[in-house]
Design a protein around this nucleic acid. Structure first.
Lengths: 317, 317
DNA sequence: TCAAAAGTGTTATCCTTACACCCATGT
DNA sequence: ACATGGGTGTAAGGATAACACTTTTGA
């Protein structure tokens, strides 16, 4: 007879709060966690319905756009429901976690019940290149990773590629690979916890500068979500799921920049947006800009049926 | 106490056989099935390891490139292991299926054990646009779907968009959405089976022209795989996972066409390939072309580290 | 000699990128 | 007046798509 399996559902709920993209987290005794809950095979008809129900229950939020991310089943990577499923010893239920990405345009407004919004940069500070290459990369991450790589060429190549050394371009989509590299190298506090032994120096000392840890494998799920969203931006008009009904083009640009973590070229961004026809000017103006009032736009949802519904390109500054 | 969950793993193994892309299927009493097996929470450390093991065991094949596709958990959609997990009545284990995509360059050569290769066009004949718009679409699919859509605008829009009516462009990536539309409309034999009741006329009569059904939800997983692969071609150099060590540019083009199901422009395809630098001419010639001998090329795996590893565009003929 | 497939050249067009500049408001 | 952010024009370079054309083999 085979052992038992428990399926845990976790949601990365993203929304804009004060111009910054943030993710919904719940706070307990330990580190922050994503909204998560068990899947009940008797009661729940689909994963997505179960997810929507418990996110609303835990955080007071109604989800809009929802997309499945990945199913994590590795033994030894602390699963998000480990605390719900009992002890992690032999004979305990195996926890498989299905991660979801959800987008909501209402982030700023409604107050969450037992949750609050945390910008993703808290968990991945090195992923924010909007004001140039983050110093922490060359001051802390790269030296530690190269020490770990020792003189193994395969490891060195990964470090150079993922952290844009020697002229390699920063690829903002590879969030998960970077996190996994840090995890493998023991630079994520989660790695030590999962191995249930202390590594000492580097991990603990650097911990905070490399991003706040999360419960279970939640930071891994968050990395998956951020990478997926950064990629999807470029070929599907998903940004608009994060925007209010009307918005200025600058607000749209700030949202895209906040998600992708790179600075964009203002003029070309505008041109690109209007050329796609995804957006419609309303003639009305938004006065509180600090300068000249900006025109308000809305997303042309209908327009998508006729076109091939493309995404956005990222015209780098 | 909650009910039990069983996790089933299914693999869509794709390879080129005689110039056509095909998928590995196993034959039993009923309809064809994908290689599939249960996940043992006690013995299996990761999904991927378990998958590689039982695919080799069932089909004699070693997998190369492997990627997780999606996890299906809907109640009522016949799960692939329903026959392994006992009856589908109340109290039976809930089956959740995790689908994987695997690519192999050795499709043509090694003989499979209890499996054989089937071109995907058997299961999705309307997805092959290489010789123009398939007649079955306008002769059978569209009339049946519009009848089903009745006069519901939302359904009509889906039909028109997905099957390229009224000037909408055929989007070859949306394989899953098209299959799901046919399923919803009762035009896939699987839909009747899942409802355990007979629909009569349309479904049965059209069945074969709209593609051979598969066991469980395997055709859904295959549709997911084909759509994912068609999309991935455009932004990652995955075609080369399907090619032998050396190949001609025509063979490469035929493979891309076979996967994406659309005809490509020969001259521009060649130019695009060489421009990316993904490929290196060997100076040697392949004589058996039927015409002028063609130069042999190889994939520059090394080249990927320096570049941003792009995919291919699809220059339509 | 002809069919079949490989391979080259050229051009119009579109998109991207970059640069320079003007406009409308608040202080 | 001037700082701040909104918004427009234009031109170079590269990629795409479409065209016509030459080359090398086997039958």
């Amino acid at each position: 007879m085979t052992g038992n399996v428990v399926i845990g559902l976790s949601a990365v709920v993203m929304g804009v709060r004060g111009g910054e993209i943030a993710t919904l987290t719940v706070r307990g005794d330990g580190p922050r966690a994503l909204p998560a809950g068990p899947f009940d095979p008797d009661a729940d008809r689909t994963f997505e319905l179960a997810l929507r129900a418990f996110v609303t229950q835990q955080t007071g939020f109604e989800l809009g756009y929802v997309e499945q991310l990945y199913t994590f089943g590795d033994k030894g990577r602390d699963a998000p429901l480990a605390d719900l499923g009992g002890e992690t010893g032999p004979g305990a239920a195996r926890v498989v976690s299905v991660g979801y990405l959800a987008l909501t345009p209402t982030a700023g407004e409604a107050p969450a019940i037992a949750a609050d919004w945390a910008p993703w940069s808290r968990f991945f500070p090195y992923e924010d290149w909007r004001r140039g290459r983050p110093p922490v990369i060359d001051e802390a991450i790269v030296p530690a990773l190269l020490a770990w790589a020792d003189s193994q060429p395969e490891r060195q190549v990964r470090v150079r590629l993922l952290f844009a050394l020697d002229g390699a371009r920063w690829n903002e989509e590879r969030v998960l690979e970077r996190y996994e590299l840090l995890y493998e190298a023991g630079l994520a506090p989660e790695a030590e916890r999962d191995r249930a032994r202390v590594r000492g120096e580097s991990g603990e000392a650097l911990g905070s500068r490399l991003g706040e840890p999360m419960a279970g494998d939640h930071r891994r799920i968050l990395a998956t979500a951020l990478g997926r969203l950064r990629g999807k931006l470029k070929y599907r008009p998903v940004v608009f799921e994060l925007m209010p009904a009307t918005f200025t083009l600058s607000a749209l640009q700030r949202t895209v920049e906040s998600v992708s973590g790179v600075p964009l070229h203002k003029q070309n961004f505008r041109r690109m947006i209007v050329r796609t026809g995804l957006v419609e000017g309303l003639g009305r103006l938004e006065p509180d800009t600090g300068g000249r009032p900006a025109e308000l736009f809305r997303f042309r949802r209908e327009g998508l049926v006729s076109t091939s519904a493309p995404g956005l390109s990222l015209p780098l500054a």
